[in-house]
Design a protein around this nucleic acid. Structure first.
Length: 612
DNA sequence: TTGGACGAG
DNA sequence: ATTTCTCGTCCAA
C-alpha cells in the first residue's frame, strides 16, 4: 500500500515499489444506462425505440441509444443534435425531481439486499455495493459436486430467499477472458470463486431492476471501487464485467490501457498537471487539448522516468492541494483503492437549488428578487421532501389533530447563497477555467422560521426567506448597486443536524413501525441525542437541562452556551410539554413538539444541535 | 466556521 | 449558443 523507500545514506527514496492490492473485499458497481432518458421512457413507454434527448437549457444532458445510433452525443448543442437527427424527441430535464425519485427507488432495492449497509450512491445513476459478507457466506455454502444447480442465499435468516444459478460459469462478461477448460482448476482459487459468485449476484440484481422497474444497467465486479467502476465500463450497455485479477499483471494491464482522465479520482486539474509533466520535455510546446488528460495513458505515466508517489506529490503540489494526493494517484495508477463504500444514509449533507441565466443575465433588483423567490420555493419544498418524515399518530396523543404528524429527521443550520457573474467576452481563451468559472458565496445561520411545519405555507416561508434573508445576503455578496450580469444563482442549506427518531425511544414502545432497513436505525442511533438507557446508567455524571428550564433562563436574558446533555426532545407525551400551549405568542417546536414561546424558539432550537 | 477548489455524474 | 444541476470532500484562513 505504501511505497517503500530504499534509503542508502540519502533522504530520498531511490526505489519505488508498486503498491500492493488488497483483495479482501468484493465490490459491485451499477450504472443505469442513459438514466435520464430511461426515466422518461419508463414513464412513457411509447418513447422506447425513438431517438430521445434530454435537454437542460441549450444542451443535451443525455440521450438514449437510439439517438446515439444516429450520431447524437451527450452534451451536444440542441441545435446540432436536431441537425444530425431531425426527428429526435427532445424533453426538458431541468427539473431533476423525476430523476431523484427514480434514483431513490432503484437505490432502495439495492440497499435492501445489503447485509452491511454499505450502499453508496454516486450521482443519481450509479451505486456501489460492498457485498463481501454476502459473498463469503455463499462461498462457504457452495457445493462443488453440484455446481450447475447452485442456490444463492440472499438472507441469512431465510434459506429459501435467493435464486438458482449455474456456478460453472460467470454471469455476463469477464476480463480478461478465460479459457472454459480452466474453470474447474480455478475453483481452487478463492478470489475466483468470490468474483464468480459476485457476478451472479450482480446479474440477479440487474435483472431485478429491469424486471420490476424497467431500468437496464451496466455492472462492474471487482475488489475495490475504482476497479469495479472501470470494469463496469468495459461492456455497456445492458451488460456487466467481472474483473479477474488472479495475476497482478492482469490488473495492471487493464488499468494501463486507460487514458489518465478516465481514472475516477483523477479529475481534469490533476490530469492536466500530470500530463504536462510527462509531455514537458517532449517537443512542440503543443499543449492545446481537445480532451484534457486524454493524450497520455496510465502506462505512459507509470513508466515515465523516476515516476513515483513522491514525484506525483510534487507535480500536484500547489497552494490548496490535497495532501497525500501523490500516494492516492500512485495507488490508482496501480488499481489500488482503499476507500470504503460508504454506509447508506437517508439524510443528504446538503441540499442546493440553482439556476443559470446565460443567455439573459440578471441585472435589475426586480429580476433578482423574482429568481430568489423561485429558488427559495424549490428549496423549501426539497427540504420537506428530503428532511422530514411523516408518522402515524396515536389518537390518544393530545398533540395530534390529524392522524399524521410531519417532523424533521434532520435540519440544516446554515444557509448559503452563491452567484457567478457572466464570463466577460474576454480576449484570453486560456482563461476559460480561471476567473470566469468561479463562484462567490456568503453564508449565515438558517433562520428558524424556515423550519415551521405547522402554520405557514411553503409559499409564505419562501416569500419571507427570499425577501428578508436571501436578498440581504445577496447585497452582502454583491455590494455594487447594479450591473451584476448574474449568470448563476445557487442557494444551499447545509450543516445538517440529526434529530432523534421518536420511534426509537423505548418509552411506551407502542408504535415501532417495523423498519425496512436495520442499518438505517443503527445509523440514526449514533446520532440520537437522548438515549433513556444511557441516562439511567449514569444520571449524575452530566448536567441535564430541561427545555422549560432553559426557556426560563432565556426569558431572563441568561443563556448557557455550553449545555452538556440535552433532555429528550422526542417525548411529546410528557404532561409538562404543554406548559406554553395556550400562550398567545407560543408555537410548537417542529423538532420535538414542545410548545415554546416565540422569543425562546431560537434558543430552544439550539438544544437540538449536537456536540456543544 | 466560512469560502473556495476540485472531484464526481 | 461552451456550462446543467447538483452533491461531497478537502484546504486555508
Amino acid at each position: 500500500m505504501r511505497t517503500t523507500a530504499l534509503t542508502s545514506g540519502r533522504a530520498k527514496p531511490i526505489v519505488t515499489r508498486a503498491p500492493k492490492r488488497n483483495d479482501d473485499r468484493v465490490i459491485l458497481h451499477f450504472d443505469y444506462d442513459c438514466f435520464y432518458a430511461s426515466v422518461f421512457e419508463n414513464a412513457n413507454p411509447t418513447l422506447k425505440g425513438l431517438p430521445l434527448g434530454v435537454k437542460q437549457k441549450s444542451i443535451l444532458a443525455t440521450c438514449n441509444y437510439a439517438a446515439r445510433a444516429r450520431g447524437v452525443k451527450k452534451l451536444m448543442l440542441i441545435s446540432e443534435a436536431q441537425k444530425i437527427c431531425p426527428d429526435i424527441v427532445i424533453i426538458s430535464g431541468e427539473d431533476l425531481t423525476p430523476f431523484r425519485d427514480a434514483s431513490k427507488k432503484l437505490w432502495s432495492v439495492l440497499r435492501s439486499h445489503s447485509w452491511n449497509g454499505r450502499v453508496e450512491r454516486l450521482g443519481l445513476d450509479e451505486v456501489f455495493l460492498d457485498v463481501t459478507d454476502v459473498i463469503a457466506y455463499n462461498a462457504e455454502l457452495l457445493n462443488r459436486n453440484a455446481l450447475q444447480d447452485s442456490f444463492f442465499q440472499l438472507s441469512r435468516q431465510d434459506p429459501e430467499k435467493g435464486f438458482s444459478f449455474d456456478a460453472t460459469r460467470f454471469f455476463g462478461c469477464v476480463h480478461p477472458s478465460v479459457e472454459a477448460k480452466n474453470v474447474s482448476i480455478l475453483l481452487d482459487e478463492p478470489l475466483y470463486v468470490r468474483l464468480l459468485l459476485a457476478s451472479h449476484l450482480a446479474g440477479y440484481l440487474r435483472h431485478k431492476l429491469e424486471e420490476d422497474f424497467g431500468y437496464t444497467s451496466s455492472g462492474g465486479i471487482s475488489t475495490n471501487k475504482v476497479l469495479a467502476k472501470l470494469a463496469g465500463s468495459v461492456n455497456k450497455p445492458k451488460n456487466q464485467t467481472a474483473l479477474l485479477g488472479l495475476r497482478d499483471a492482469d490488473i495492471q494491464n487493464f488499468v494501463d490501457g486507460h487514458k489518465l482522465r478516465q481514472i475516477p479520482g483523477i479529475g481534469s486539474r490533476m490530469a492536466q498537471l500530470i500530463q504536462d509533466y510527462v509531455l514537458s520535455e517532449d517537443t512542440t510546446g503543443d499543449s492545446h487539448d481537445l480532451e484534457i488528460g486524454a493524450k497520455v495513458t496510465v502506462q505512459d505515466v507509470r513508466q515515465h522516468p523516476d515516476m513515483s508517489a513522491d514525484l506525483l506529490e510534487r507535480i500536484l503540489d500547489r497552494p490548496g492541494a490535497e495532501r497525500g494526493s501523490g500516494d492516492k494517484v500512485w495507488n490508482l495508477l496501480h488499481g489500488v483503492d482503499t476507500s470504503e463504500v460508504k454506509e447508506a444514509s437517508d439524510v443528504p449533507t446538503q441540499i442546493s437549488i440553482e439556476n443559470t441565466y446565460m443567455s439573459k443575465p440578471l441585472n435589475t433588483p426586480g429580476e433578482i428578487t423574482r429568481e430568489l423567490h423561485a429558488l427559495a420555493t424549490s428549496l423549501v419544498r426539497r427540504m420537506r421532501i428530503d428532511l422530514t418524515a411523516t408518522d402515524e399518530i396515536d389518537p390518544s396523543d393530545p398533540a395530534s389533530q390529524s392522524g399524521q404528524q410531519q417532523r424533521w429527521i434532520a435540519y440544516p443550520k446554515t444557509l448559503r447563497l452563491s452567484t457567478r457573474c457572466r464570463p466577460k467576452p474576454n480576449s484570453t481563451p486560456s482563461n476559460s477555467t480561471a476567473e470566469s468559472f468561479s463562484r462567490n458565496s456568503r453564508s449565515q445561520p438558517l433562520p428558524s422560521f424556515v423550519l415551521n411545519l405547522r402554520d405557514e405555507s411553503i409559499e409564505a416561508i419562501a416569500e419571507k426567506l427570499a425577501s428578508e434573508v436571501l436578498l440581504p445576503i445577496f447585497r452582502r455578496l454583491n455590494p455594487e448597486r447594479q450591473g451584476w450580469n448574474l449568470a448563476l444563482i445557487n442557494i444551499c442549506v447545509t450543516n445538517m443536524v440529526m434529530v432523534a427518531d421518536p420511534n426509537e425511544n423505548g418509552n411506551g414502545g407502542g408504535r415501532d413501525i417495523s423498519r425496512m432497513f436495520r442499518t438505517q436505525k443503527d445509523k440514526l442511533r449514533e446520532w440520537t441525542v437522548y438515549d433513556p438507557t444511557h441516562i439511567q446508567e449514569s444520571p449524575a455524571s452530566t448536567h441535564t437541562v430541561h427545555p422549560e428550564e432553559n426557556a426560563d433562563k432565556a426569558e431572563e436574558g441568561e443563556w448557557d452556551e455550553d449545555v452538556g446533555v440535552i433532555e429528550n426532545p422526542t417525548v411529546s407525551s410528557d404532561p409538562d410539554a404543554d406548559t406554553w400551549e395556550d400562550e398567545e405568542e407560543s408555537q410548537r417546536c417542529h423538532l420535538c413538539g414542545h410548545a415554546i414561546p416565540l422569543f425562546a424558539m431560537p434558543a430552544h432550537e439550539r438544544f437540538h444541535s449536537i456536540g456543544d
